[in-house]
């Protein structure tokens, strides 16, 4: 049997972390309760106590915990980000996921034994970029932005000894991660600067008869009829007007789902498959982890003979944003 990619699941809270482990995640990723991580949402994430408990829970079961410190340190005083790296090292995480090159530099000098993963927010879309991070900081894994075709992912893998992690399921960023400022253009806060995209405090839902309007900082993002599936009021997934046509001009509310490509993903040597959604509930984590665990194991056994079970597709389909799913950039026609 070929070497299976690790299943890396999101944990926005301690129950989500335990749930992910219980349902078959090989590793979970988490963030601290501040702007050092890209899901800096009110009430979400870990403090020292819950992080300690979570790491113990995972390690007792032989699983890994990765700490995402994946926003960009701002300005001159970057001590909060450096402290987050120190804290992660002290807590005994299995790796930190970093986006900022200056912070990678700090981590590699200060904690030479701490394993470094290059965050998707670093926007490394080619092997030269990945190899630069390896040469400079000893990065051992890179998470690729969701813009490459599967062939291009394979090409990167063939040209680097850095492990490659790709996204397998979850709400889809249609833009190159780390290179999207749409949120700050509308609100002043972006993933890079504040660890948020289309932040909740700027969101307003308006009910007008049977129509629901979603506004972000007063900018109308979308309107939904009574039973129309809704999505997050994320800028890239709104309906806009271009030359008189009103449509999802950038992207539909949709989720990435790579189930049908699993044998190819295994075949080209992907090291880890990541699930998006630290902002989602334990119920989501349970269903995704369980489904992908089963699907990855089956794909590894069956490879060429593999076919997606309708039950998996149904389980994931229900969780998908806008109840739509796509193979995203992995599949050339999407472009």
């Amino acid at each position: 049997m070929p070497k299976l990619p690790e299943l890396v699941c999101p944990a926005g809270s301690l129950p989500a972390l335990k749930t992910a482990i219980d349902h078959g995640a090989d590793a979970v990723y988490m963030g601290l309760k501040n702007e050092t991580n890209a899901r800096n949402f009110a009430g979400l994430n870990f403090d020292e106590k819950s992080a300690t408990a979570g790491i113990r829970y995972a390690h007792d079961k032989g699983r890994k915990v990765l700490m995402a410190i994946n926003t960009f340190a701002q300005g001159v005083d970057i001590s909060r980000w450096q402290r987050a790296v120190d804290q992660a090292a002290d807590l005994g995480v299995d790796a930190v996921i970093l986006a900022d090159l200056g912070l990678m530099d700090y981590a590699s000098r200060r904690h030479p034994n701490l394993r470094l993963h290059m965050s998707v927010q670093s926007s490394a879309t080619n092997y030269e970029a990945v190899n630069l991070a390896r040469d400079l900081f000893g990065v051992q894994r890179a998470v690729l932005p969701r813009v490459l075709t599967l062939d291009q992912v394979g090409h990167v893998i063939r040209h680097t000894d850095v492990e490659i992690e790709v996204f397998g399921f979850g709400s889809l960023c249609v833009m190159v991660e780390g290179r999207c400022l749409l949120s700050s253009y509308a609100t002043g806060e972006s993933p890079n600067t504040h660890g948020v995209c289309s932040p909740a405090k700027f969101v307003r839902w308006e009910q007008n008869g049977n129509t629901t309007s979603a506004r972000l900082n007063d900018i109308l993002i979308d309107q939904y009829g009574q039973n129309e599936p809704a999505g997050y009021p994320t800028l890239c997934k709104g309906r806009f007007e271009v030359q008189g046509d009103t449509y999802y001009a950038l992207e539909e509310p949709t989720s990435l789902n790579v189930l049908e490509m699993l044998p190819q993903i295994i075949d080209i040597g992907v090291s880890a498959i990541k699930v998006e959604g630290r902002q989602r509930s334990p119920a989501y984590v349970a269903q995704v982890a369980k489904t992908l665990r089963e699907a990855i194991d089956t794909a590894g056994r069956e490879m060429q003979r593999f076919s997606v079970k309708p039950a998996w597709q149904a389980a994931l389909g229900k969780l998908a944003e806008g109840q739509q799913q796509t193979l995203g950039a992995y599949n050339r026609p999407w472009k």
């Binding site: 301690l14 009430g43 979400l44 902002q279």
Partner: peptide, 17 residues
Amino acid sequence: TELGLIVKNLLDSVDWS
């Protein structure tokens, strides 16, 4: 909306175990 998120995240973070 932000309050909604706080409440939702609060419910999610309860360790019923």
